[in-house]
Write a protein that binds this DNA or RNA. Sequence first.
DNA 1: AATTAGCACTCGGCAACAAGGAGTGCTAAC
DNA 2: GTTAGCACTCCTTGTTGCCGAGTGCTAATT
Lengths: 344, 344
Amino acid sequence: MLLTDRQLLILQVIVDDFIRSAQPVGSRSLSKKEEISFSSATIRNEMSDLEDLGFIEKTHTSSGRVPSEKGYRYYVDHLLSPQVLNQQDVSIIQSIFAEKIFEFEKIIQRSAKILSELTNYTSIVLGPAVSINKLKRIQIIPLNKETAVAIFVTDTGHVENRTFSIPASVDAGDLEKTVNILNDRLAGVPLDDLNDKIYKEVAMLLRQHIHNYDLMLHTIADSLKMPIHEKLFFGGKTNMLSQPEFHDISKIRSLLMMIDQEEWIYNLIRKNSAGIHVKIGRENNNSAMENCSLITATYSAGQEKLGTIAILGPTRMEYSRVISLLKFLSKDLSEVLTKLYQNI
Amino acid sequence: MLLTDRQLLILQVIVDDFIRSAQPVGSRSLSKKEEISFSSATIRNEMSDLEDLGFIEKTHTSSGRVPSEKGYRYYVDHLLSPQVLNQQDVSIIQSIFAEKIFEFEKIIQRSAKILSELTNYTSIVLGPAVSINKLKRIQIIPLNKETAVAIFVTDTGHVENRTFSIPASVDAGDLEKTVNILNDRLAGVPLDDLNDKIYKEVAMLLRQHIHNYDLMLHTIADSLKMPIHEKLFFGGKTNMLSQPEFHDISKIRSLLMMIDQEEWIYNLIRKNSAGIHVKIGRENNNSAMENCSLITATYSAGQEKLGTIAILGPTRMEYSRVISLLKFLSKDLSEVLTKLYQNI
DNA sequence: AATTAGCACTCGGCAACAAGGAGTGCTAAC
DNA sequence: GTTAGCACTCCTTGTTGCCGAGTGCTAATT
């Protein structure tokens, strides 16, 4: 079931044209293109074959053709001509890193914003996984007799905090001793493993030094129980409203609701392995995304994958351009973060 | 230009009916209502007068009438029958406070969510102003030779943190001394006044104890410069998509873009004094809000105003119900926060 | 003098219909 | 194998006519 060169050419031109115009492509308008040197009748025959093979579809009996999901898939896998970014795009992306920055939440937020502005689609950035960072220091600060704040600082400078109530039987001295023991034992431990480590190693020590040790232990362990979700950042949530395929309010509605849900997006994006991934339409397994494609790229520090950047657009999206942008940004982002992490 | 009782009645019924149905109200359908005991012809005459006075409008020459902004304003100011919340609403709102909570970000987020679910409009909650909270403790935690995290804990348990680079001439001992001085001098000072206080009181002390004191000073002051914006929380951003007045994509678009902007909303909401405020349509001074009304209420701890809760809906919104809900929630919220603050 | 019944008129919405255009599929000629 | 030609399909647009809901005005009624 191999396609002939001419079929490939026609498929490519159809997809390109439809991406540009959002209008079904007819044989006559194709025949007028430079790249194409045969008559509309020939094209009609080829299109008929391409339709039989499932790469293109008609919207009604006598309409032009529109790429099917299979068509987009083939286009992305085999026909994509890598687009070179123009100088303007490059410098806009690089402007993200212009200022000296310490907190990558800022960088990441700015990345999302700029990505959505450059593409006019919706951008999504999954922040770095905090849970693999290593604990630098724990601090417990009493607010009053009954409550205190526990602060966890990671080696990357990320700060988590939890408020908890101090067990009645615990006094200030106990608290201080506990903090010392915790810092002693837990520094350098990934946040993910804290709970484990607390019960396995710290419990014993606490018992030796603190009166009501197990109450204290559970209080601290409880503060840590809440899983630390990677944060999602969005840019251009409303951009989809300008896409002609979303003239229909109910489609927009279900899409925006899904986006605001965050959970779906989180699951779609998180599990990705390194590199660029393109998911087209129903490949996303979500009815709200039927007319959407999601392109993801990962960024990392050194060898370690940190997070994901992604673009959500209509299936009729500028795959080539978006992929180039994502590749470029993820490379830059990784370089900057690698440097940042080396200092730690 | 006082309205007769009959005119008031008619105006009220028109507004009520339009709020319910979103359809222009005609004289005949009005005459069928229970409350109304005169003929459609009489109603037509009265409606004509009400239109001359600017309280109602026609959508075209032979259509029924629709409330004008002036009509809504009058309705809200004079004709609103305070609605009693049903038991279900009450218990749903109270469920917000069911769990024991320490961090009001959680409470507030939940409030926004529930408010939007109860009303089917968009809810907005302005978080408590952090900047008036008093500093409880400063902690500086070095990450490596060049960078450190400064952590500021307030008496309410709020934690702010900033990463900064350590001046080359400063060593660990200096850092520790600085932190001690800062805690000594700044505990109990509102975050707003920290900068001032640092330059006026702390500078001198630093000079006595630290070698390169002014570099240190500026580094610390810089970390504090960034103003601490109250956070905005939203619920039901997409609810407006279901409102019939927003069938028009371009209206939806400009509204959602304005909401995502956050700045406009922030300015609309922040400056409000205590109590319920209703802003109708163009009273909001924002073209994107032409068909919207914004109802705000404040919440406080003790005497101190902390933040704002608001509902953004179409001008054709259920004013009575929304006002009752906001009143109720703001009262509950204030009570809970007052208790929380008393412990501090 | 206030209210109401009656009636002509207006306008939006809907369905039916026609014309035009863009497109296809098929057949026959090149 | 390619292309010209043609009949056919279906969407789009515009026109027309009609119905229903509503108004404003006038004249009759209370």
